[in-house]
Design a protein around this nucleic acid. Sequence first.
DNA 1: ATTAGCACTCAATAAGAAAGAGTGCTAACA
DNA 2: TGTTAGCACTCTTTCTTATTGAGTGCTAAT
Lengths: 343, 343
Amino acid sequence: MLTERQLLILQVIIDDFIQSAQPIGSRAIAKRDDVKYSSATIRNEMADLEDLGFLEKTHSSSGRVPSERGYRFYVDHLMSPFSLSNKDIRRIHTMFGEQLMEFERVVNKSAQILSDLTNYTSIILGPEVFETELKQLQILPLNKHSAVAILVTNTGHVEHRSFTIPVELDPSEIEKTVRILNEKLQGVPIYKLNQKIESEVVTLLRKHTNNFKNTYDYIQAALFSEQPAKLYVSGRTNIMNQPEFKDIDKVRDLFSAIDEEGEIAPLLRSHNQGVNVVIGHENELEAMKDCSLITASYTLGDEHMGTIALLGPTRMDYSKVVSLLNVLSGQMSKTFRAWYQNS
Amino acid sequence: MLTERQLLILQVIIDDFIQSAQPIGSRAIAKRDDVKYSSATIRNEMADLEDLGFLEKTHSSSGRVPSERGYRFYVDHLMSPFSLSNKDIRRIHTMFGEQLMEFERVVNKSAQILSDLTNYTSIILGPEVFETELKQLQILPLNKHSAVAILVTNTGHVEHRSFTIPVELDPSEIEKTVRILNEKLQGVPIYKLNQKIESEVVTLLRKHTNNFKNTYDYIQAALFSEQPAKLYVSGRTNIMNQPEFKDIDKVRDLFSAIDEEGEIAPLLRSHNQGVNVVIGHENELEAMKDCSLITASYTLGDEHMGTIALLGPTRMDYSKVVSLLNVLSGQMSKTFRAWYQNS
DNA sequence: ATTAGCACTCAATAAGAAAGAGTGCTAACA
DNA sequence: TGTTAGCACTCTTTCTTATTGAGTGCTAAT
């Protein structure tokens, strides 16, 4: 168990380091008004804190730097709540107050605000389309050879795919199939569509349409293929302003991970309640060993919808980021409830 | 006018530098089998080529490096046609041979192929939606408060927007308005929609619907707002492999330009016939002064549709990139003609 | 328990020396 | 007259070596 004095010193060091990115020496701490001890005393305490694993040295005679364990302790026990500036608050409210918003736009703007206000990189994971319900299915012929298939969900999500019409398919057959599918499948969650079709619609289709198998196969291939949730990234270049990312190789590895389809998304999908902080090597990805990833869920009613996150160096302004994510995820949830909740 | 020998030496230097990224000395050139002159002779010629502005030195006793003017001359007069490897050709054909392709997918895959095969960053400018024609307009209520508006063009492009239904709007009015708009506006180019409505549809709407102004305003705001052509970027990190981009500040400036909405797009929009090469300071953007941007159009029939481009250091493999862009833009055009051309 | 004092460590910076790649120029050569 | 050998010179790169300064750990005094 840490003494009061140790807690104070640890907090001071971490707060300072988050600002300066420079190792902190005992003298610098002793000079502060809120610390009443001599540098020698502080040196002793720092040595103890290092033994306990909360601090590190960059070399044998350098000042101290927080270890990952130190950050973890800070986040869990020490961090003081951050009050966002009025300017920042106003900016957020202005955005959510805008008329004529739309899902993609809300998400994009939110990502932008997050990265702008923090100078870190923001990542937002969109909703899993598969958990929403089918509202409408439509197939619209464009010309002799091609058509576009459009699927709309109850959240206003629109999925579409163009495809070439095989010659052997009769347009009227397609139309009939689509009509039947629409009638029977409204309100069914997307991920249950296939199952539902198998169990209840197939027989009906077989009875009412010719060449059933072919038509249906085609529609299914065009629309019901697994569509991964979308990632929105903003402020990529902010990372490059951080002194710990002066090295181009580090940046490249990190960027590769972000751009690599499916590397980052799983990290955002583990959605505990509230705000989640993953520090340095706690991250599964090698490229993120010098980063922290802070995530928060946004919801539709009580259901998890997606995740918003900020990616920065382990030396992050945790307090500010956590508050900001709290505020923003709340605003997003509120907005979506107002839009989509049938009431 | 350059002598044969000068041409040879210039070509050798540029070819070599494109591979090695190192200044070339006279001795290295003299050693090559295809050059029959002594290093002293070559030194003299190099001095002349430098006076003419085709070569530069990095410092007074260094080897020579091509100047931007040198690259320009190389691209315009010296470059030998590149034959893509069979493997590369096959990869392209495999992709375009795939079943069930769709516009976004073709573009994304093309961007990926471009960046993979060149190790540069590829940028594709999507089609201007505004030049395509309206196929269908639809408004689909999701629940009491909100609806989604969907606009489909003759190229299978789907534009959609969710919006909140104001209480004073009667759903049946919306429906009626949409029906009339659909009837009258099919086949009209998107950019002419507003004009056409003013001139031909307004009176009709006023006659058949109540509260006309309000309904129409709303639909218009939801759908007909200017939607800029989309940018697809692939292989961002490739830039960081280039030795001329070891400096993080340079990379940040370039990335900022790429990510900045509307910085890059205009550069891709100046679409001459064929392949276009813009070298170093010929680029308008300060951040791109060490880069070359090579662009090519893809078309629908004879109409320009969009642009594909590769961004790399001025020391680019121009020959390979030009061939590749030629092949790929051709394939894309062919594909889109097969899909969309009514015949 | 706290602190003053001091020897010690290590990174960062600067200055000098040596090596090496490449040039420009001059004079000799075919 | 065009080409080439030779050589002094320039500038970068790399390696030492010395110096400075921030900061520590330990001991002894308070």
